[in-house]
């Protein structure tokens, strides 16, 4: 465990909490892609099945349970409690375009051809593209609430910190996980455009709106 990993996990948790608090306080999930949130719930579910079979550490177990809870509560708030505020019209990304290639790739490129390992690989590949429905929604409506951009910033920061974590682990432990690293780089690239807008607009007090 190194400082980049811890900060990455904290940033990831913070992103999820920001989103939950935003929805809860405003009693609205306007501008949030329910599809991205379903994908994240699917990511955690398929990745954390080892909660039932393998104990790594108390930290690991607690974080996994918290992440799962956050993901499912978010999906419930969007499609259950506050579904009247959900902008399904603009959440029109076609999930099959992501799911079909991701399922195919996880069967082709994995560390071992076992159910849990294929599901883990599936979750890694899926996480790298899960934010696309949300980014698509923002590009479609041309704007995002400032609180939504904070959520996206911390989610992107988590990815960037994990990259630093992998570089650190490679140098100190000679450890690297090819599947996670490649997917992580791809995922981080998706945030670059957003980071640029966040720094040039949101941090200067302006609302994020696209021309």
């Amino acid at each position: 465990m190194n400082v980049f990993r811890i900060l990455g996990d904290v940033s990831h948790l913070l992103a999820m909490v920001i989103l939950l608090v935003k929805i809860w306080r405003s009693k609205s999930c306007a501008g949030i892609s329910g599809k991205s949130q379903i994908l994240f719930a699917l990511v955690f579910t398929s990745r954390y099945l080892d909660l039932l079979t393998n104990f790594i550490s108390i930290y690991n177990t607690v974080m996994k349970v918290v992440f799962l809870l956050c993901a499912y509560v978010t999906v419930y708030l969007i499609y259950g409690k506050f579904r009247k505020t959900f902008d399904s019209e603009n959440d029109s990304f076609r999930l099959e375009f992501l799911l079909v290639p991701v399922i195919g790739l996880s069967f082709l490129e994995n560390y071992s051809f076992t159910p849990t390992e294929i599901l883990w690989t599936f979750s890694i590949y899926l996480e790298s593209v899960a934010i696309l429905p949300q980014l698509f929604m923002i590009s479609k409506t041309g704007e995002a609430e400032t609180i939504t951009t904070h959520y996206l910033f911390f989610l992107g920061l988590y990815r960037a910190l994990y990259l630093a974590n992998w570089i650190w682990r490679y140098h100190t432990e000679n450890f690297y996980d090819q599947i996670a690293v490649v997917s992580g780089v791809v995922q981080t690239i998706f945030y670059c455009d957003f980071f640029y807008l966040y720094i040039t607009k949101v941090l200067k007090g302006k609302k994020l709106s696209l021309p």
Binding site: S112, T114, T116, F175
Partner: peptide
């Protein structure tokens, strides 16, 4: 890489 169900990262 680590194999099997040993992935310790979240």
């Amino acid at each position: 890489h680590k194999n099997g169900s040993e992935h310790d990262e979240l």
